[in-house]
């Protein structure tokens, strides 16, 4: 499902060139739940954003469902992302002035047709957010915010979920809810790539890949 081939990503900071990813190669199968673990600053988030089509690598190729991601135009990339990729971030990135149900339905802005309300309500219910659906993010706990962010990512049944330290701010109970939902997603055929250094997540992974010295080590 995800094919990362010889990907190198560098940043320029003033006159210095900083290498964030160094010749990364990885393959993730459909329905697989993969955890990429590593210390802070090892390039986990960069990897995730590169796989998500948000950071163009200097070298290498990324294929998702056999589509060379960076061959796509900006317009088509946005379309592809909307249809196939769901993101969940540690900081949730919920829109503060929208209610929970409205935040969950945000991806519909990227689609021609709006998703049926039933789908949003089903996710709300399954993630235990029914009582909070008309609240705004500022009125929610960290766990509820992250569950909302996960529901938003799952709304259009993407092929893959890219998750970045999603349990970092959560207690054990909320972490379990979120991780179990990801398990459920992968069991239904979805692919999960989770980058984290939170050990709670390791138990849920089909495979754990360690990231050291800008490289992945199986």
């Amino acid at each position: 499902m995800i094919q990362i081939e010889n990907v190198t990503k560098t940043y320029t900071k003033g006159n210095n060139i900083v290498k964030a990813l160094n010749d990364i190669n990885i393959s993730v199968e459909k329905g697989e739940f993969v955890v990429v673990k590593g210390s802070s600053g090892c390039g986990k988030t960069t990897l995730l954003l590169t796989v998500g089509g948000l950071l163009h690598p200097q070298e290498g190729k990324i294929f998702i469902d056999n589509q060379d991601l960076y061959e796509l135009s900006t317009e088509n990339m946005a379309k592809f992302r909307a249809a196939n990729i769901g993101f969940v971030f540690q900081q949730y990135h919920l829109i503060p002035y929208l209610s929970i149900i409205e935040n969950i339905k945000i991806p519909s802005l990227a689609h021609e047709s709006e998703v049926p309300d039933e789908r949003a309500l089903e996710l709300i219910e399954s993630l235990g957010l029914k009582e909070r659906m008309h609240h705004t993010p500022s009125e929610l706990s960290a766990g509820e915010k992250q569950r909302t962010a996960l529901a938003r990512a799952l709304l259009y049944n993407p092929l893959i979920i890219l998750a970045d330290e999603i349990t970092g701010n959560l207690d054990h109970k909320n972490a379990s809810i979120v991780l179990n939902k990801l398990i459920e997603f992968s069991k239904s055929g979805g692919t999960v790539l989770l980058v984290t250094h939170d050990e709670k997540a390791f138990a849920y992974a089909d495979r754990i890949i360690e990231m050291e010295n800008l490289k992945l080590q199986a």
Partner: peptide
């Protein structure tokens, strides 16, 4: 910025 970032991440096009 955060709002715009997530909208772009979920695939909302530039003109929107």
């Amino acid at each position: 910025r955060s709002e715009i970032g997530i909208l772009r991440a979920v695939g909302v096009k530039e003109w929107k």
